[in-house]
Design a protein around this nucleic acid. Structure first.
Lengths: 197, 197
DNA sequence: ACCTGAACACCGTTCAAGT
DNA sequence: ACCTGAACACCGTTCAAGT
């Protein structure tokens, strides 16, 4: 199936793919460029042609993660009702699902230490996602289902609640029995907090 | 001042102290046992007498962090009014202050990968803090300032909002101008969401 | 009991040299 | 253009040996 034109074919994407797999399976601490190269069957110096250093590979992984996150969030809004409650619930569920399925990757995405070049692209990807979120709140306001006020300020507490719940779930700080109704409770309380009047 | 009885005196606590300093100044990635030993003026093998391996030192750091966190949260409740709003505000502020002042440490505390022996002690420390938090909510209910219901379920969305806001602040995902009123907005929205009826 | 010295197997990164 | 081979300076960890 895999056609290696000359030396390898597409080392960069195979590096990314393998890196993400070990990220998922063994955590970010266990990610070694040399091991990656070994598994792929290439010399220890080969990766450096495509990623300046290890951080560059991590940055690429994070960027890729944000893009898929954007897509997942956008997809969650398709074929769902128009009410704010339904749309928020769908988005919250997409958020938490992504977080659970990509725990180590999410950690990377929201980690502080990114190179300067990367944080530009990362900032853009994060911005695209925040635009989706702000759009949801703004539409809720237009429909009169969310209270008035500057959209960023109304959105922040909502964002904090979703992000916090996702983070708590992923880091295992939640009593397991709570995962059953936890998100429902969070969404319900956000709706209560957002309501007009 | 420092009296070195024979070989060093108190290597374990000097290791912890230095480790936390580099954690704060250069992040968790830059923490090296060998460098620590070098700075202290001790052989590379010396640390292993006191911490079985690197993870054990990280565990000890995290545990220590939780203890100080517990204290800071408890201290925030002293000399503050009795209303739920005031007490919640004080606790939220203590939470975020600690998070900002100890970003890398907090990351460690809420990180997934702890050894099994450590996670027992860590779980206990995390439990003590959650007891404080649940106590706050329960008292709010007793005073009729927080709506009724199982205290863990009422508390979870509140906890998620605080934790999420702290995490967003620390990871720099918040537009800087928002840090001025962000926490006020979060606390206000939590109060709205918690209110009875 | 506490630490040293030396060793082992591993890193990330660089750079000449090969194809 | 893409990769290899070899080297460099660093790791964490172990273990005999010293005090």
């Amino acid at each position: 199936m895999k056609n290696r034109p000359y030396h390898h074919g597409d080392l960069p994407s195979e590096l990314l793919a393998r890196a993400e797999r070990t990220l998922r399976e063994k955590g970010s601490g266990a990610l070694s460029l040399r091991e990656l190269a070994r598994d792929i069957g290439v010399s220890p110096a080969a990766p450096s042609r495509h990623f300046k250093n290890k951080q560059a590979l991590l940055d690429a992984l994070a960027l890729n993660g944000f893009e898929r996150f954007d897509e997942a969030v956008a997809a969650s809004q398709e074929g769902v009702g128009e009410s704010f409650g339904e749309r928020l619930d769908a988005m919250a569920r997409a958020y938490v699902d992504f977080a659970v399925a990509n725990a180590a990757l999410l950690d990377l995405m929201f980690s502080v230490k990114h190179s300067l070049e990367a944080s530009e692209a990362l900032g853009a990807a994060a911005h695209r996602w925040s635009e989706q979120f702000l759009g949801l709140i703004a539409e809720g306001q237009r429909r009169g289902e969310v209270r008035k006020g500057p959209v960023e300020r109304v959105a922040l507490p909502v964002f904090a609640a979703l992000h916090g719940y996702a983070d708590l779930t992923v880091s295992g700080m939640l009593p397991p029995e709570m995962t059953a109704y936890g998100l429902d409770d969070v969404v319900a309380s956000v709706l209560r907090q957002c309501g007009p009047e």
